[in-house]
């Protein structure tokens, strides 16, 4: 694979090491200390850290600002960009700004619809006007244009080019399943270099999906990092299985969590088994770990998985 920007993540993958990414959700308020606190917990345990862009359509500190704070703290960000809130003008402007600030990895997403923010305890902004000027695959091609063509979507040139290492998401088990590999191919053809997947619990079905991608030659062209969300309780697994599109949790795993004496320990156990299982799948280049509102669990998990210390990157 050609080196595009030489970010930690890109070099880690180029070296053929098993990569680790983790997620850092920006706070709902303006305090940089909140980001720094998470950075302190997670420093050194992953190669790069995803900074979400107003996930679930709840207003949070911008991914660009939080990414910059991570950089200052010595952590490499993967800045997420969703298509919900910004048109191609604003997105490209922010990409140029992000590059100027030293951000080199981006993850291109459609983004949760604005109605999602009104779930749970929060009011969100369900009355907001959405944008969706471009979709996530078009966004990938826009970022690629800024990088490889030094050209904006509209055709105007930029100087110098803005090279980013480009990421995209994959929901292999979401319906219509027969299209999901085609969609992955579209993302890779558009310019995606790495792929972070929807959370994986059903290893058997996930492995089948990866096999299909491998048969199409996709796993050689982009690095696939399966998402793993640390389970905390049987209820959480049950909820995700029923309500989060593309997440399939085997019945047996839910039962196992339910019968566990200490669900927290069991969840860590399951996470370690999942990491181990995906590590042994052909075509898999790393993991993307999430411990929602429990980041403090990640260092021990990554250590127990034998992935610490992170090897030096040359």
């Amino acid at each position: 694979m050609r080196m595009f920007v030489g970010s930690n993540l890109e070099r880690r993958l180029a070296a053929g090491d098993f990569a680790v990414t983790a997620e850092v959700g920006p706070p709902r308020g303006p305090d940089p200390a909140d980001v720094k606190k998470k950075a302190g917990i997670l420093r050194g345990v992953a190669d790069a850290y995803n900074v979400t862009d107003n996930q679930t359509a709840v207003v949070r500190m911008s991914s660009i600002a939080a990414s910059k704070i991570l950089l200052q703290e010595g952590l490499e960000p993967v800045m997420q960009i969703v298509c919900r809130d910004r048109n191609r003008i604003a997105i490209q402007s922010d990409l140029l700004g992000a590059w100027a600030l030293g951000i080199r990895n981006v993850l291109c997403l459609s983004g949760d619809h604005q109605s999602a923010g009104a779930g749970g305890k929060l009011k969100g902004h369900p009355g907001a006007k959405n944008v969706y000027d471009i979709d996530s695959i078009q966004l990938i091609s826009v970022v690629k244009g800024l990088r490889d063509g030094a050209v904006q979507e509209g055709g105007d040139s930029i100087s110098p080019a803005a090279p980013f290492f480009i990421g995209a998401a994959w929901t292999p088990l979401g319906p219509p399943e027969k299209f999901r590999t085609i969609r992955l191919a579209k993302k890779i053809n558009a310019g995606a270099n790495f792929i972070q997947t929807q959370a994986v619990y059903d290893i058997k079905r996930f492995a089948e999906a990866v096999r299909r991608a491998e048969d199409m030659g996709l796993t050689d062209r982009a690095a696939i990092l399966p998402g793993i969300i640390v389970p905390r309780s049987a209820g959480m697994l049950k909820y995700m299985n029923a309500n989060v599109p593309g997440i399939e949790v085997p019945e047996e795993m839910i039962r196992r969590m339910k019968n566990a004496a200490d669900p927290k320990i069991e969840g860590i156990e399951i996470t370690l088994e999942l990491i181990d299982a995906v590590k042994n799948l052909s075509g898999i280049k790393g993991v993307h770990l999430q411990a929602i509102e429990a980041e403090e669990l990640l260092p021990d998990i990554i250590r127990s998985a034998g992935l610490l210390p992170r090897p030096r990157i040359y």
Binding site: S115, N130, D135
Partner: peptide, 20 residues
């Protein structure tokens, strides 16, 4: 709900309904 032009987002439900 997102006017996507290159295929479905990751939100399609198991029964084929829209996440929204």
């Amino acid at each position: 709900a997102k006017s996507l032009l290159n295929g479905p987002c990751g939100g399609t439900r198991k029964d084929g309904k829209c996440e929204v």
